[in-house]
């Protein structure tokens, strides 16, 4: 059973649909016992990181997530909440990744939000099994995680090279949306489910 953490933050439906397409069983839950009992845990998230973090704190789930020893995947803002801090609303995250999240700096000819399909590289580990260097995945975000010792994939937007994915022990995060990234995204989700 896969637990999708329900903390009233954005488009859960697309993550549910993606898991449904992969034929796996999941439940949407905010119950610490159900989350702890699940085989894998997904932390989705869209919108504002500060608000999302506040919702997560109010739900009392930050300590539950920190204590998990099974594979956990944060997606987009979900991943940002697993970092040390975010410049968005000057938020303090859960600190699972040794990484800070910053706003893209204004740059001539470079659009923010970073929206659309971009390539990922420097792919490391089982999450990217079968995914070629330079594969396209879908991004939509205005804040991005720095490169750090937990980086397992990178992406470039303008002159900024940032972490497209992070891993520390059992914790994984992607800045891109695997649930919206066609066949490549489906493979990455499948790889996570196979961990």
């Amino acid at each position: 059973m896969i637990a999708i953490i329900d903390y009233a933050c954005g488009n859960i439906e697309s993550v549910r649909s993606a898991l449904g397409r992969l034929g796996c069983e999941y439940e949407l839950t905010a119950d610490p016992a159900r989350i702890s009992a699940a085989d894998k845990v997904l932390l989705p998230g869209v919108g504002n990181a500060a608000e999302a973090m506040q919702h997560l704190r109010e739900s009392g789930l930050t300590e539950v997530i920190r204590g998990l020893r099974k594979p956990v995947l944060g997606i987009c803002v979900g991943m940002q909440l697993m970092c040390l801090t975010s410049e968005e609303g000057l938020t303090e995250g859960m600190g699972l990744f040794d990484c800070r999240v910053r706003r893209f700096l204004p740059e001539e000819g470079i659009k923010v939000p970073h929206m659309g399909w971009n390539t990922i590289g420097n792919l490391e580990g089982k999450l990217f099994k079968g995914i070629p260097e330079g594969a396209f995945v879908y991004f939509v975000h205005s804040f991005r995680p720095d490169l750090c010792c937990d980086t397992i994939a990178t992406c470039r937007h303008g002159s900024t090279l940032f972490s497209a994915a992070l891993k520390y022990e059992n914790f994984y995060g992607t800045q891109f949306h695997p649930e919206k990234s066609g066949g490549t995204g489906a493979q990455i989700l499948q790889n996570f489910l196979a961990l």
Partner: peptide, 30 residues
């Protein structure tokens, strides 16, 4: 559409309130 399609999609037409937008988000619109 959300169930069947694995790329992002936008929906529009006749959205005139926050409630309309919320309904479409809940239905799975990106």
């Amino acid at each position: 559409i959300a169930l069947g399609i694995d790329i992002p999609f936008t929906v529009g037409g006749g959205i005139s309130s926050l409630e309309d937008a919320s309904r479409l988000l809940d239905a799975g619109a990106d």
